[in-house]
Design a protein around this nucleic acid. Sequence first.
DNA 1: AATCTGAAAACTGTTGACAGTTTGTCGGAG
DNA 2: CTCCGACAAACTGTCAACAGTTTTCAGATT
Lengths: 246, 246
Amino acid sequence: MNEASAPSATVTALRIRRTETLATLVRKELERMIVSGELKAGDRLNESALADRLGVSRGPIREACRGLEQSRLVEVVVNRGTFVRQISLQDALDIYDVRSALFGVAGETLAKRITPSQLSILSDLVARMNGAADDLDANYPLNVEYHAKLVEFSGNVRLMTTYRSLAQELHLFRRRGLVSEGSMAVSNREHRAILDALAKRDGARAGRLMREHILAGKNRLMKLAEAETGVAAEPSRRRRRLTAGA
Amino acid sequence: MNEASAPSATVTALRIRRTETLATLVRKELERMIVSGELKAGDRLNESALADRLGVSRGPIREACRGLEQSRLVEVVVNRGTFVRQISLQDALDIYDVRSALFGVAGETLAKRITPSQLSILSDLVARMNGAADDLDANYPLNVEYHAKLVEFSGNVRLMTTYRSLAQELHLFRRRGLVSEGSMAVSNREHRAILDALAKRDGARAGRLMREHILAGKNRLMKLAEAETGVAAEPSRRRRRLTAGA
DNA sequence: AATCTGAAAACTGTTGACAGTTTGTCGGAG
DNA sequence: CTCCGACAAACTGTCAACAGTTTTCAGATT
């Protein structure tokens, strides 16, 4: 809860600079801490403490927070501080819908322009995921990379940055936990089908499969939420609370 | 080219604060200046000059720039300054693809939950656009509002913010100029068709129509670019230059 | 015991100053 | 005339200090 007591002194942010500003280094470090879960949703970012911990003054810290605010990883409350954003279930579901649309257009675009070497990279990833089909921890990073590559290979820079931003934001919701071994098998089958559609340059099919692939993830989350709360998630569109009090 | 000599002293940024931080006010003012074209693509943002002009110190200016960087309206080059971003034709086309996908999912979502009062608001906008079918300047803001409302009414907050961010970014490309009277008539017909699909709660059709509506805009831009340069735009995916020298 | 009050502590918002880098200029050498 | 280098000006990056706000907490009051 308090970042001053964080264990890993991963403050590689020493003066190797001239290429990057301290604010940028701090932003990346904070991004890492948030995405990795070192900083949890709702946590407050104490400027002075962070400044001490990272060995810089408060200026760069504030600049970094302003960037993080715009990429929706934190919320800034005037005179009270900046807090790691809290994502409601509804927010997460909303993000899935947007991600699904983006992933779909990535598929349509990629099918038109995919190269043999890109195909082989994707094919390799699918094979490795099949090989690790019973190991969640090995599968997870491969899965993330496969998705990232699909978007990256589309060649649409803006699509890539938007997708990445949404994926990062989704990390605020939960530490994995959504992938079970059963879903992993299904997921891998879908991965292969997507690869197949891309190899055949079938843009419409690749787009549809990729949209559905993300929506399958959304459905798993909804099922899980229903099971936990006993209430259906989607119909009740309650607004998220804006204040992020710890 | 120099913001110190800008005419309108729209520095409403006086101390009415306590609700918003100076950095936020500055960011919004800069956003306005960029989107309105007061600051043009490639322009440099001189921190000291801006600080003087807006009556604040450089701290809030820098924080604002960090936010704008993350929302892709400016680019920051270390030790050289922050520049209003320059959007290449390819960037613009890429953005159209993303926007199209987002607009489509907005349609699918909205069709499921649209209310009578929302329908009447949209219907009113369509009617007013038809009434102003021969007046580009009157039509433009209505058109923007219609699109914004369609996304807003979807209820997906993240979709709305992402869409708005992309729309703003597209403003960097060109000051309107894309809408001719002929396209306006076509556009209004499409608006009506979208409204019709929404009224019938036909999500698939609304989504398709809305996707195509944006892609029509992309096609107009491509045609225009081909006519200007004599070269087809889409196939040649040249990378945009990163340095934004004036 | 619970609550209210007000001062102290902690923290954010903002500023001005200093250091280092980049840009622009002027004079001289080739 | 062109090119080169030193010097000056302009500007960005960073920091420490100050001002104002929020939070904490001890002590008084009911």
